[in-house]
């Protein structure tokens, strides 16, 4: 007889247990790559709005420009910049692993951190340059 308590703590399948999985960087970046991919998809519609407004005429374009230039508009664009940069770096990470290079455990962890940090860094740099040239 194996020593299994059939009445009390019966073993459950991992997905039924609370906190069976620790949230790892790999999970977080996997889902964030997906979310930012969908974000970029939605970005195509934003771009369409701006370009169609330009194609329609001066009034429509002024409205679009005012909207994107507002605090809310800039905030959305800022988040969108981060989303795109995060997704791009995530994609480059995929390329590295496709080759494959940097596939040892510590290097993998390093790449996760580098792409997360890099996304924020690039976003800030882009906006600093953006304000400097405007």
């Amino acid at each position: 007889m194996t020593d299994v308590d059939l009445k009390g703590k019966r073993p459950t399948s991992p997905h039924v247990q609370n906190f069976a999985y620790k949230i790892t960087l790999s999970m977080a970046t996997s889902i964030s790559h997906r979310v930012t991919g969908v974000g970029a998809y939605i970005g195509l519609f934003f771009l369409a709005y701006w370009l169609i407004a330009l194609a329609i005429g001066p009034e429509a374009f002024e409205t679009a420009q005012t909207l994107w230039g507002s605090i809310l508009g800039r905030f959305v664009l800022f988040c969108f910049t981060w989303s795109l940069m995060h997704h791009m770096l995530g994609g480059i990470r995929h390329f590295l692993w496709d080759i494959p290079v940097m596939i040892e455990k510590p290097q993998i962890e390093f790449l996760y951190r580098a792409t997360i940090l890099g996304g924020f860094l690039l976003t800030v740099v882009i906006w600093i340059i953006g304000y400097a040239v405007m």
């Binding site: 005429g57 001066p58 420009q65 994107w68 230039g69 882009i126 953006g130 405007m134």
Partner: peptide
């Protein structure tokens, strides 16, 4: 960046 803030 080039398009931001440009007029019609």
């Amino acid at each position: 960046m080039a398009a931001a803030g440009s007029d019609y």
